[in-house]
Design a protein around this nucleic acid. Sequence first.
DNA 1: CTAAATATTGGCCTACAGGCCAATATTTTT
DNA 2: AAAAATATTGGCCTGTAGGCCAATATTTAG
Lengths: 207, 207
Amino acid sequence: MSIQDIFISPLEAGLTSWVEAFSKAKIASDIKTIKVKKTDELVFWLHMNADRQEWLTNAISLILQKYKNAKIVVLANAPNQAEALHAMSLGVVAYAHAYSPANMLTEIKTVISHGGVWMGQDLLKRLIEVSTNLAGNHAEQVNQHLSMLTAREKQVAVEAAKGLSNKEIARILTITERTVKAHLSSTFERLGAKDRLHLALMLNKKT
Amino acid sequence: MSIQDIFISPLEAGLTSWVEAFSKAKIASDIKTIKVKKTDELVFWLHMNADRQEWLTNAISLILQKYKNAKIVVLANAPNQAEALHAMSLGVVAYAHAYSPANMLTEIKTVISHGGVWMGQDLLKRLIEVSTNLAGNHAEQVNQHLSMLTAREKQVAVEAAKGLSNKEIARILTITERTVKAHLSSTFERLGAKDRLHLALMLNKKT
DNA sequence: CTAAATATTGGCCTACAGGCCAATATTTTT
DNA sequence: AAAAATATTGGCCTGTAGGCCAATATTTAG
């Protein structure tokens, strides 16, 4: 079993750095025209033009559908984060500049063939920033709010913030509706919330 | 210039798979005790216990401060996404299970020494999901909801979703409270929301 | 061991929310 | 021009929410 590189590019000959890096690669302009041994380990290098957004999406899903274990690299003429994110969300394992030098291409291949992911420093950074800011930071704020409540109040509060009625909360916690109200009242006071809607906003807000 | 692996673990001998993978590695329990040639390319393997959250944070920043170009890998006894995100946001380039077999450890090393990033499939997926959701997807979803409403209903809906009462909305839109109710009722029906709290969740939720 | 905080529930009362039926004027679509 | 969708408002009625006063059992903290 060997590794087969396949370039998909509108250019007939591919770029020189590609040829330099992988002399035995196949070059095609359309996915459907290529023929490969199913047993080969496949690496697809998709050359991306700015005006082929839709093509990229289709190409990726087509490849992954046909060759389950194929690795896909996107080489963009004009790399941008949004596109990178989109591509990687579809299953691409590397995203780089189309004019990357040959030695970088071989490094990328080394990385992905060992199960790694390759992307620009800034992209990774951005990815993590977004995640931690909007997922982590928020969680911390919510936790800070919840930490001001007693254990029971917390339970009631999170259910109320989901949109459940007092009656529903009472049922799932096996207490009286009256008790739910009591917990909520003290919750409102502790958190400074006007009512359950404000509570919900405090516990769900994305800032 | 050679590559020097350094294991930091509370265990005196390290795990067998580590020793197997990198026989020439140094093993220490504290970062301060190790001595390395500045010229070496350094790979730190931090062994993470569930109860050393704080230690990890400190260790990472200490290492990166002292050895600018060092690569850091975190090996977690009990891997979890939150911790992985946190670690990678601090500059870690790989996050894996502490009991990963020796061959996986060598693959990780290959990947990171070529500039790649190594993390579990599900973590990467999650990372991208979160990013795409919170960056663009969410706004689109909200707009899709709002597009199902008439101009007036939209105005009422967004105010209601902020937590304003019918009376308040009536005042700022200069209409009767009764009219606000009418717009809200049809809004609920159009969007399939039970009440204003669910409406608020639809327009504020981060999923 | 006592004082303080929590968990539970009751009754009562007011305000607000939201549904139902109905009507009119304006705007948009066909 | 006729039909359909929108914008406004009324009255009425029911249910839920949340505040106020009050009491008891349990847990926790000093």
